[in-house]
Design a protein around this nucleic acid. Structure first.
Lengths: 138, 138
DNA sequence: CTTGTTATTGCAATTACTTGCAATAAGGAT
DNA sequence: ATCCTTATTGCAAGTAATTGCAATAACAAG
């Protein structure tokens, strides 16, 4: 059973459908080195599926994020970028040079526990971005 | 010396100017209970300053945020909302009912120190949003 | 394989946000 | 008080993101 079949099955069980659009977008995210903006996804996906439209790009990225197949991150000024969902992590970004470092979620475990105790909320882990200056830019 | 004069002075020292547009937008943020989207700011500011345009709203909010007079937060799906800058805090938001709780930054001090040690970055504190389910929605 | 149901897409129109540039006005200097 | 410099705004046009709805196509069932 291929990777694609697994994904298809996972969606179907929940009452959703696998489509060529979703597959292409997943493939684009999978092949990407880091984050992609929705329009970057559109441009890269256009090669495999020329008819793909913008509303579908946005809706699909939101769909994939909602169902745990993609991660959305707030990088810089208010726009969302996406990446394929792998291990759970966060980002530290340098405001000066844009350099990015990943922080494993394990580092935030304690904090999450504290916040849960303090607020009574049950946190479902977000994808956080911390900003600062990297060693080279200080 | 009024509060307004202080703000004016603070900007002037850095080579910027106080304008009626900036004052009105600051006033709107100050009077607001919580977060406001750029368009909510526009609507509320329109009463005091009818000529105010959208580009100015967006540019001013960005300007105020950059200079520490306003805070931008990512609430929900990728759109920025703003609030007047007061004490340094973060938010926990319930995905189900939208309820918000503030977390003082003091709670994150340890984590920030850990991340700084781990990455070598010097973090300038961001305005973070954690998502989860509140006690009523679990 | 064919059919039926309905999740998903594309289209068209709308709203949200951004950008370049000329006109305006804040605030320092005379 | 008037002038000068230039930060800031408004305008107009452009790009990005969203929405409603009819057409399409997954996929379950016969």
């Amino acid at each position: 059973m291929s990777c694609t079949d697994h994904l298809t099955e996972a969606l179907r069980i929940r009452g959703y459908r696998m489509t060529s659009q979703r597959l292409v977008i997943l493939q684009v995210l999978h092949d990407a080195a880091g984050h992609l903006s929705p329009l970057e996804v559109r441009d890269r996906a256009a090669a495999s599926l020329p008819g793909l439209t913008e509303p579908t790009i946005y809706r699909t990225l939101e769909f994939l994020t909602k169902h745990g197949l993609a991660l959305a991150a707030h990088v810089g000024s208010g726009k969302l970028v996406y990446e394929i969902a792998r291990h759970h992590h966060h980002h530290v970004i340098c405001r000066a040079c844009g350099r990015e470092v990943e922080i494993d979620h394990a580092v935030l475990k304690t904090l999450y526990a504290e916040i849960e105790t303090f607020t009574g909320f049950h946190l479902n882990t977000s994808h956080l971005t911390f900003f600062g200056l990297c060693p080279d830019c200080v």
